[in-house]
Every structure is written in C-alpha cells, then in structure tokens.
Nucleic acid binder design. Sequence first.
RNA 1: GUGGGCGUAGUUCAAUGGUCAGAGCACUGGACUGUGGCUCCAGUUGUUGGGGGUUCGAAUCCCCUCGCCCACCCCA
Length: 430
Amino acid sequence: MIRRGKEKIQLRYSAPKGIHDILPPDISIWQKTEATAKELFQKYGYQEIRTPIIEHTDIFIRSIGENTDIVEKEMYTFSDRAGRSITLRPEGTASVVRAFIEHNLQNFTSPQKFYYTGPMFRYERPQKGRFRQFYQIGVEAFGERHPTMDAEIITMLCSFMKAIGLEGINFELNSIGCEKCRPDYKNALLLFFKDKLDNFCPDCQRRYSLNPLRILDCKVERCIALRHGSPLIPEHLCDDCSNHFEELKERLRILQMPYTLNPELVRGLDYYTKTTFEATSNHLGSQKAVAAGGRYDKLVEEFGGPATPAIGFAIGMERLITLLMEKTNLLSPVPDCFIATIGKEAELKGLLLAEQLREKGYHVEIHYGGASLKSQLRRADRMDSRFVLIIGDDELRSGKIKWKNLKNKEQGEIEIEDISSILKNNLERY
RNA sequence: GUGGGCGUAGUUCAAUGGUCAGAGCACUGGACUGUGGCUCCAGUUGUUGGGGGUUCGAAUCCCCUCGCCCACCCCA
C-alpha cells in the first residue's frame, strides 16, 4: 500500500493467474532435484541443451499437432515488432528438434542425447498440479531406433525417481504403433464403438470423430463399462512395432525395471509412435502423471530434417515436488557462525573477520548494527546458527574473542588467529 | 471455455444482521545495562478482496466484479 497525500491507494500486486514464485525454503528442494537429475543423466551420457523459451509459432503447430488442445487454445502467442508470430514454448521437445535440425547434429556420433530444464507455458485454468507457467526436466535422444534405447531412457527415469527418494511411483507402458498400424487399429476401434456410440458421454461422442483413441482415456464409469472388450492397441501392432515392444519388455525385465502394461495409455501429442510411457502417482489429485514420454520416430523428418528416430520424456517439476514435499521437511541452509558485535569498532572488526572465515569456506552471518547483544543472539538462534562469536569493548582490549556454541551452551575465549580451529572443532560435533 | 467451494491482521482462524472486528502464531521491544531458546509484559499490522444494493444498522443478506482453490476438458 502506498500513501499519496491524504489519499490511500491500495496497490496489491500479484503474479498473473497460474504463475507462481518459488521461494526459499522451497527452492532448496528444486535445486536438489535439478542437481540430482543433472548428475544422474550425465552418467547415461546425456548433455544439457539450452534452447530459447520462445520459438516461431509454426514450430509448435507442426510438432504438437494442429488439432491438439495445446495448439488450439493453450498457447501464449504474440506478434513481435516485425509482425512475426512468436509463441512461449508449451513444451520442450519441439525446440530441441528444431535445434537438432538447425545445427545438423545428425552429423555427430549417434545417438545424440540431451536433457534440459526450464519453464513451459500453457494458458489453462489452473488446478492442483497444473499451472500456466510450469517447469519441466526433459530428456531427448536422437538417432537410435533400437529398443535398447527405449529401455535405457525408461530405466533412467526410474533411477532418477529412486535417486531423489520417491516411492510409490507406477510406471505404465504401452505401444501405440506407427503410421502403418495405427490406422488399422483406429478403424477397429471405430467399428467396435459404432453401434454403442449413443450411450457414451458427450465428450466421448465428440472424441469418436476427433480422436477415437482418447475414448480409452475417459473416466466416466459408463464409458469404462461400455469400452470393456474393445480392441487393444498391442493386438493390432504391425510386426515391426510388435517386435520392438517385445524386445523392450525383455530388456526391462533384465533390468528388473517394474512396470505395468496399460493398453489404454494414450498420449495427447500427435507426434508419438511406438513406445509410450508414464510415471504416475495417486497423490496428485486428478493429474496423476508426474512424468511422461515416448518415441517420436517421424517428427524430425516431418520437420524437414533427415529421417531420425527419437525418444524422450518430460518430468513435471511441480508435480514431482508436490510428492517430495510429503516426505521431506524443508530446511534452509543454516549458518555455521554468527558474529555479534557491540560498537562501531567491533562491528568493523567483525565485518572483516566474517570475510576471512567465508574465504575459509564457512557460512557466516553478521550483525548489521543497531541492536542489543540480546537481540543479536536471538537472531543467531532463530537462524539456527550453531556458533556465535562476540566482539565488544572487552574483546577489543584483550585481543581475545568470546565464542559460544549455541547447541550445547559451551563458551570461552580465544585468540583471533585460532578461531577457525575452534569453529571447526565445534561444528564437527554437530 | 464449463461447474463447485472459499476470500477477515504477515499467517492460521474467530465474530447468530446489533457497542470500537478479535485471538493464537509470527514480528519488534522490555523484564535481563554484554549472552539465545523457556516464561511473563507491552507494541505494530485491517477501507473484512473491490464495487453497488437491501436495512435504523452489513464481515454476515442480495447482485456484479476480481482473486485463490478444486473438478471437468486436456495435460507434465
């Protein structure tokens, strides 16, 4: 609130709808998650790629698909000053594919494996686990069609979940075929639903003509019952897709990677082929997917690049962190030492001492002036500092500094040059 | 885009249409002059989201609007 003359004007700014700040102490769990991903993905040979958060709008229309909800109604699109249509990225794959083609990365040793992290933007109505700006950690691998690639990437996702300590995650697996076998399956589905269509929910009736695979996804009980016995994708795969799927499952078995086959697992983006998978949890409200991905063997080619098979996944950071919060108690970093001072001369001495201790690697907080020793110690205590140094007139006179261990109340005096040893000694015990 | 729930202090929440809208926590200070946590005391923070209406009187009832949450659609 600001006051202007007698008039009070209330200015209560808030971030735009569905867009959130990430504050300490929450930020530490984000940092830990990102660091864990980075470290683990590098072990599998994935390197970071940084693509822009805006692209020409066409990039997304062509990759995600013209008739998807994302493109039809969820993109943040605007014209730049030269009148070009620009869009804030709603997902990460399109940009990576564009970069792959633009820089001719197929000329490097295959497969090319990337990971990235950053914000995505979708204009949706926010709810639990869904935001207008949300963060993903994504992974893409180009140039390898062998199912061993699929197995590696799925296993990597699983070990990531383990590495950050998430349990109770379900891995669902399916194959949705390729451009050869999917049309056949679609026809089989249409045939099966044809005479029952009137009994389905309005949404499913709409899906029938728009995207019949989505009927498999419907949560309405009546529809679940009606689709009982419907043809399943795995039964309609062509030999190539079927072999691929079998080989993948064999490798997952060898790797002792637990998964559930879900023949009704359908993905919302147009570009997927063959393998699709999802990591789900029951603690996320109605958005249960915490990570999802699949193969997209045709996308690079459709984009005007060389025929290049590819596979990837994306982790929804907010959803992941929602789950992590249930188990983790958040702690902000705690100072090793607080330097309390009385008087200007001591304050200056403390300022210098703090710098010297930080150079030695300690996390040091100081007193900025103006408060009683009591309130300084209270501040040190509330920050959960483990150790306090006190500098006042007595200490300036004697050249010794008082120290106190706030955890066990031990205290004493020490020569200034011995501080780091007593600090080390006290910190080691906690 | 559709539907439901909720908006009161920094925060968590009270207040049946009826005095000046309160309490816990938090924060600041003091009791304790240079020693934290515990205790006690004191202090600060509100156009009750905003606007309009009904009424002698509205945080409370009605309408509009904005925001948040949840669900649908769809997705990470």
